[in-house]
Amino acid sequence: MYERGCSDADGEFVVSKDTSMALKYFEEAAEKDHLKALLHLSALLTTLDPPYFRPEQARQLLHRAADRYSSPDAFNLLGQLYEHGLGLPAPDLEQAGTWYKKAAREGHSGGLFNLAVWYESGNEGEDGRKRAAPLMAEPGCIKCRMIRLAANFDVRRGRQMPLTESMAVCSSESLRHPNHEARVFQLSKEL
């Protein structure tokens, strides 16, 4: 079912042109706890226009992915939902930090970047600000920053990088630190 929701012409994730059918297929696959379906469906439910915009459902799906698979992508996306208050009465910055830390501990580049920005924004006070600079210097974080800058540039030119594309790029293996396992272990002690 998951594959029916996407078109894989060039080996990349692209949502089927029929949004309602794509959502139907992703929902069927998510009911069977298919990890990629849970992640992509939640990303779509937070980026599409109404009536498809359903952030509460996206949060539930991400919690399932986090609980069942300990998915760093789910950790990072949960952090984003909590930080921006999507599907919540208000943003919950403490929960956002908790999820970003989990993603960063797993070596997720997007989670590392989001955690650094979260610290830089004054969360956890002056100690947090001091932690931001070393995190921003991490190779995966630098690449994520470049991707985000490119996305912002595209937004100014009238093209917005979809969340699913940003998510896929920031979590790809190519962004991992060359000595990934040792660096993740070291970061987990620091965070």
Rank of each mutant, 00 (worst) to 15 (best):
V169L: 15
R4N: 04
R176S: 01
P50K: 10
K101F: 02
R64K: 14
A65F: 05
F26I: 06
R148Y: 14
R145D: 06
F113D: 07
A96Y: 03
R59S: 07
P89F: 01
G87S: 01
E165F: 05
D73S: 13
G107Q: 01
A104E: 09
L86H: 14
N114M: 04
A168N: 06
A151G: 09
Y25R: 02
L39Q: 08
G122L: 10
D49P: 00
P89K: 01
G111A: 00
S16W: 09
K101A: 10
G125A: 12
R156Y: 11
W118F: 05
S7Y: 14
L187M: 14
P89I: 01
L187A: 06
E31W: 11
P55N: 12
E124R: 04
P51L: 03
M161R: 06
S7E: 15
H177R: 05
L86Q: 15
L39E: 10
P162F: 02
K189E: 11
L62C: 06
Q60K: 07
N152K: 06
R68W: 00
A29R: 06
V155M: 08
D33I: 03
H108T: 05
S71Y: 00
P51F: 10
R59G: 04
D49Q: 13
E181H: 10
S20M: 04
L81N: 10
H180R: 09
V14R: 07
N76I: 04
M146G: 15
A151S: 07
T19F: 03
E181K: 07
L77A: 13
S109P: 07
D67E: 10
G125I: 11
I147K: 07
C144L: 00
A133G: 13
D10K: 12
Q57F: 07
M161L: 13
E28G: 07
Q60E: 05
P162N: 12
G5W: 06
S70C: 08
F26S: 08
A65R: 08
R105V: 05
E181C: 00
K102N: 07
V155C: 03
L135Q: 09
L163W: 13
R156C: 10
R157Q: 13
E94H: 12
A96L: 04
P162V: 02
A150Q: 15
G107W: 01
R176Q: 05
R131K: 15
F75Y: 14
K36G: 02
G122Q: 04
D8G: 08
L39F: 02
N76Y: 08
I147E: 09
K32G: 14
H84P: 02
K130N: 11
I147A: 12
P72M: 04
M1P: 11
R159V: 13
P134D: 13
A58C: 01
R148L: 13
M161G: 02
L44P: 02
L48M: 02
Q60L: 05
Y69E: 10
K189R: 11
L41N: 15
C6M: 15
L61P: 06
A132S: 13
S121T: 06
P178Y: 05
G5A: 14
V169K: 15
L115A: 08
